[in-house]
Design a protein around this nucleic acid. Structure first.
Lengths: 153, 153
DNA sequence: TATTGTTATACTCTATAACTATA
DNA sequence: TATAGTTATAGAGTATAACAATA
């Protein structure tokens, strides 16, 4: 079946294909840890913003409060993070647990190793060039930073 | 909230962010036509492989027969494609309708315009360079060409 | 009144498993 | 037996809409 077509002229299509390839391998690399790349992203956000609340986390990930809730539940059930008392009685403060701290470096190693392996066909200069071009393409303009789709109520 | 983190060193993360940005705009560009980028991809595959069957379409899109079924149903309901008699009685041949033919150029214009606009910050040379680097990164290795996730039965 | 967490519910896209009718 | 299409069902990840407690 002929798979090449009119979309081959689109940069977005080339990016899409690269993304599918990279994400697939990253997913496999994190499988032993029981996390997806999206969940690792959330975990790192919590580590780098200790005490943040669920709403802020959701905003940073471009998902709504209800979806953030499920995500936090999952990470908490895994014992990677915990809800502590927050600034006030209706807010809770998210923190990594010591188990989370203990696990995260291995996860970063695994996903980093995947990333290196998948981009091994590029020279170091090409890799840097690709970074530069992707950044120049621009940060998310309309919204959407991560996995999501539409807007909040 | 601090959003920069350890993933910023990963090429896959930069690609992911670029993809979300590009896909979001492509989706909006196709909204007036009632199609998503994934569905346009399927439509083009059928146009470029007239008479193909659903199973082959699914394979090309890395989705299984059941998912291909739903996709074909939707495109057929929209009047963009039709099922005709195939090579034998258990296979059907997919073809675009004249309505589909009539609509597709406007869709390609819309998504092409989106792609150009979103990559307007790049010079022509940079755009070509980005294409080259993305292709050099490699075609999908494990599987996955498009939207999907796991394997077939 | 507005906001945070929460719950119930639904939608989209995908998958698996089984059935049927061919081949 | 194996394969194409089909159907029913389920799961992952998202959304909307409501409610209670708190601000």
């Amino acid at each position: 079946m002929k798979t090449g077509h009119d979309l081959d002229a689109l940069l977005g299509y080339a990016i899409r294909r690269a993304e599918v390839t990279m994400l697939g391998d990253a997913r496999r690399a994190l499988e032993p840890f029981g996390l997806t790349p999206a969940r690792l992203t959330a975990l790192l956000l919590i580590r780098n913003n200790p005490g943040c609340d669920q709403t802020a986390l959701g905003r940073a990930l471009s998902i709504n409060r209800s979806s953030a809730m499920k995500l936090v539940n999952l990470l908490a059930e895994r014992g990677l993070i915990e809800r502590r008392a927050g600034r006030n009685l209706r807010t809770n403060a998210l923190h990594m647990t010591s188990d989370g701290e203990a696990a995260i470096d291995a996860m970063l190693d695994a996903i980093g190793e995947s990333d290196r392996r998948m981009s091994a066909r590029l020279t170091e200069a090409e890799r840097r060039s690709l970074f530069t071009l992707l950044h120049k393409l621009g940060a998310p303009r309309a919204s959407r930073t991560h996995g999501g789709s539409r807007t909040e109520s």
